[in-house]
């Protein structure tokens, strides 16, 4: 069934959109990532104009994250205090990111820089997570002395210390704000929620227990992407409600299924799966950058 999207001004198959939303929703619920890093490139691929894809995807992530976080509320696996601190940085970062996106678009290099951003971030994070999870699995198989619970790094030496009860942490507020800020910038530029950067940053940089990471990540993603949606809607008029509704109908159902799959898997398994997926997307994007494209020319809306 073809459907004409009023803002994107293209006609696409409604079931294709529902299906894409569903698959990405499952991943979203499983890993606590918004799924935008998969969905945004997929939307480009099916012919949605990039500006509409980025803005609408932000709107869709609000829905799937909200659906996912409700399950976490009930299990009390959301650290609201940590989420709030991350959010302060996140909103500031997103505001800056939207401006950066505009500037890049004007010089015609936005796609390349977005792709390079993806390759670098996905590559580094994927590799680190993969090695870490492999080591964790090896350790759990070989009985021995358990690894030290609290690592004392430079993060713990900073001022403005706060107690995060749900995360069982007593750390400075500066690192979470910085993490939120960086993720906020990337979220706005790359049209993603930023969970794929946020989740590893929470685990490895802030030392949060895996149990609360997914819920807290989803919690703050809702606000950052809601803010991004409003910015795009009021400045660029690029949020397509019809597209968003179709994606999120599939997405919210998928997120519920994903959350339940996620509970059944062990943390190490979850991390290794996420690492593999991140690496796969990274590889695909790198391949597209290096291999000779079939059409060397691209059309963009007028004016540089």
């Amino acid at each position: 069934m073809q459907i004409y999207l009023p803002i994107a001004e293209v006609s696409v198959n409604a079931f294709l959109l529902l299906g894409l939303g569903g698959i990405v929703g499952v991943l979203s619920g499983m890993f606590g990532v918004g799924g935008g890093f998969l969905m945004t490139p997929l939307l480009f691929f099916i012919g949605i104009p990039p500006a509409v894809a980025v803005a609408t995807e932000a709107n869709q992530i609000v829905a799937s994250s909200f659906s996912g976080v409700l399950a976490h509320f009930k299990r009390r696996t959301v650290d609201f205090k940590m989420g709030g601190v991350l959010l302060i940085g996140g909103l500031a970062g997103a505001a800056l990111g939207v401006q950066l996106f505009k500037a890049l678009k004007e010089i015609g290099q936005v796609e390349l820089l977005v792709s390079l951003c993806y390759v670098v971030f996905l590559g580094v994070i994927g590799t680190l997570m993969f090695i870490e999870s492999l080591n964790a699995i090896r350790r759990s198989k070989r009985p021995g002395p358990p690894p030290k619970r609290t690592r004392h790094t430079w993060v713990h030496g900073l001022p403005l210390k706060m107690r995060f009860r749900a995360s069982n942490l007593y750390i400075s507020a500066i690192p979470p704000v910085m993490v939120g800020f960086v993720v906020g910038i990337l979220a706005a530029i790359m049209g993603v929620g930023g969970g794929f950067i946020m989740v590893p940053a929470m685990i490895y940089l802030l030392g949060m227990p895996t149990k609360v990471v997914v819920g807290t990540s989803l919690f703050q993603i809702i606000f950052v992407t809601a803010f991004t949606t409003l910015m795009h809607a009021t400045q660029n008029y690029t949020v397509d409600m019809a597209l968003a509704v179709l994606l999120l109908l599939g997405g919210v159902v998928g997120a519920q299924i994903g959350t339940r799959i996620g509970i059944k898997l062990k943390a190490e398994q979850l991390r290794i799966l996420l690492a593999l997926m991140v690496l796969a997307v990274c590889g695909k994007l790198l391949f597209d950058l290096v291999v000779t494209p079939s059409e060397l020319y691209t059309l963009g809306s007028g004016g540089h």
Binding site: A63, S65, S67, T229, Y237, A244, V245, L248
Partner: peptide, 25 residues
């Protein structure tokens, strides 16, 4: 609506998103 009332449109999009998320849950 998207072009004449962008803020209202944006808020409506968010409301639809939250409603769908809650509904599915």
């Amino acid at each position: 609506l998207a072009h004449e009332q962008p803020l209202l449109y944006g808020l409506l999009s968010l409301a639809v998103a939250l409603l769908a998320g809650w509904g599915a849950s």
